[in-house]
Design a binder for these strands. Sequence first.
DNA 1: AATAACATGTAAGCTGTTACATGATTCT
DNA 2: AGAATCATGTAACAGCTTACATGTTATT
Lengths: 178, 178
Amino acid sequence: MNSLAYALLAMLVRKPCSGYELAKMMEVFWQAKHSQIYPLLAKLEGGGFLTAENIEQTGKPNKKIYTITESGRAQLKSWIGKAPAHPVSRDEFLIKAYSLSLSDRGTAVRLFEDRIELYEKKLQARNLKLNSMIEEFGEQIENPIHPAFGRYIVHRRRLHLEEQEIAWCRWVLELLEA
Amino acid sequence: MNSLAYALLAMLVRKPCSGYELAKMMEVFWQAKHSQIYPLLAKLEGGGFLTAENIEQTGKPNKKIYTITESGRAQLKSWIGKAPAHPVSRDEFLIKAYSLSLSDRGTAVRLFEDRIELYEKKLQARNLKLNSMIEEFGEQIENPIHPAFGRYIVHRRRLHLEEQEIAWCRWVLELLEA
DNA sequence: AATAACATGTAAGCTGTTACATGATTCT
DNA sequence: AGAATCATGTAACAGCTTACATGTTATT
């Protein structure tokens, strides 16, 4: 049971999903590849943490819908209380920022402008996501008893992260242009 | 040449270092293990990007000081201009936050309080680091021409990240205690 | 005509972690 | 007495990425 396995269980607590859907939902945690997700789902099914149902579709490929079992829910629940592993954020951009004195001003400015563009796209998608959640659930989403509460606070965390990345880039650009 | 290799080159531009020192300095990017760093340094030396010098010490184990070569500096410089890979932040804590509705209020509160404690320690160390840099270099550190500029902006980024993590945790705790 | 979305899977290779291995000195 | 710091390395294993494989429908 690695952290990706727990991420899959966590998303399946919300609702039964296909591997394809889970791969897209993983964005909120980190972008795992489908080649890692599909075999792991099969393994979790083998371990009795999930059940799978084949759905035949016309005009689209067939799919498998995975549902979490009581055993899966229990496994996740007991894991939540344990001390989390230290977070790892592997971001090449910081190495480039660290080495900024090696490059000319034009290259440096372009690097930060591209970064802002990337994060503004992420921010837009995040706002859409959060607004649709607020529209669906209303103020009750800020109530810890609400089933979407956990999902909401995680997307809020990501929103702040994205806003702050842009703010930091703008601050660096100001220093570069001074 | 992977991103860890570039991280090592970036740190060696600043000054020649031992593998042990580099492992500690890696904290600002991500915490790579020594078992990955030592063989990679040997490989980079073999590729002509670094030179190594054995330093005999008394009372302490001997060490190897690596120095970046012109070829290493050129390699790093040409990499900076290229589009960076998408950042990956693998953080188990977000999975636990996402699944919060599964656990009782006490477990949830403890989880977030422990997180605040962890990040307050990181924040303290970061402030010490930044203050020592400001003391050493003065206002000129905010000048992009200054050799420590890159290092400074990266530590500033980490500072913001740590402050914001604490702010987010406090916000969640307020909602949990409401 | 080409790309994107839908949908699942395997295989090879690279990256990263944990454990093994050694050993003196300093701090609590 | 035990833990931490200094210091470097290897081996086995686990995790992750890239490429291979297939095929339809809808959109640009």
